[in-house]
Amino acid sequence: MSLELDRVNIYYSLGRAELRAVSDVTLNVNRGESLGIIGETGSGKTTLVSSIVRTLPENARFEGRISLDGADIHSMPLKEFRKNISWSKISIIPQYSMNALNPVKKIGEQLGLIASEHTNWSTQEIAERIYNLFKELGLPPETYFKLPDELSGGQKQRVIIASALLLEPDVVIADEPTTALDVINQAKVISLIKRSVKERGKTMLYITHDIAVVAGITDKMVTMYAGKVMEYGSTRKMFREPLHPYTMLLINSVPDIRRGRVKKLSYIPGEPPDLIKREKGCSFAKRCPIARDICRLQEPELKNIDGRLVSCHFAEETVTLRQG
């Protein structure tokens, strides 16, 4: 009972050139587990989850296999997927939540339409379900009769969360659900998601470039760079003892509030690589503080170290470094 991604590659064609947005990603999330996907902007997070819900743009090309509870959901007919998988099994809180609602239709009508597409509930039942969710998420009941423009950003975000939970799906994907919100609302929405999604025992994929967020709400996490998995493993372990220089740098850049002191807030100097060019070696080499000659020549393999997968030539060394 799980969501599995097996050697997923995704390419975008740009006229004559082709860009590899996701390279060889293999992940697996068990029922009830939550996975954080972390990476800088452009690292392919949205592309990856779009392939799960099958909304890749027209110029994208997909390779690999995605299965839910063993069933290949990427090669089944799109119509069937939309009818049986979308929303009832997997729902998404998209990155563009602020604009995800039809501007000229009432909120209740929109959610109702989605529900009636997948179920044979009566209008009554649907409305009740919506009201209950609204209540749970702290939305006033009038929201049902409002137009999106009449809601605040935080309210819209909650409506979208409600929509994602509408049909009690097994998997909920949240793609940077808080980027468009102010700090206070961000915190509220995050705790809301934690409460309403995680605590309901749903499988969750939480995408963000803000590594601090994942710490509190996910069991596993994966750091992505240039479309590749850098490190993949238990959230706790990765926070306590990151093995990959990229993960380390990401964590370094986090103010550690729990310990009562603020670590130096450093960002990672340099730019992500051009995904069109295929370069030899480790894709992080240009920005890696401990890169050596071999890094530029040979691409590191994913190694299983300490129950984690790490893509770095010197992963073992970083372990010994720490221990030493």
Partner: peptide, 9 residues
């Protein structure tokens, strides 16, 4: 919003 409606089935 159209993209969203499509994903939502």
């Amino acid at each position: 919003f159209i993209r969203y409606e499509r994903i939502a089935g």
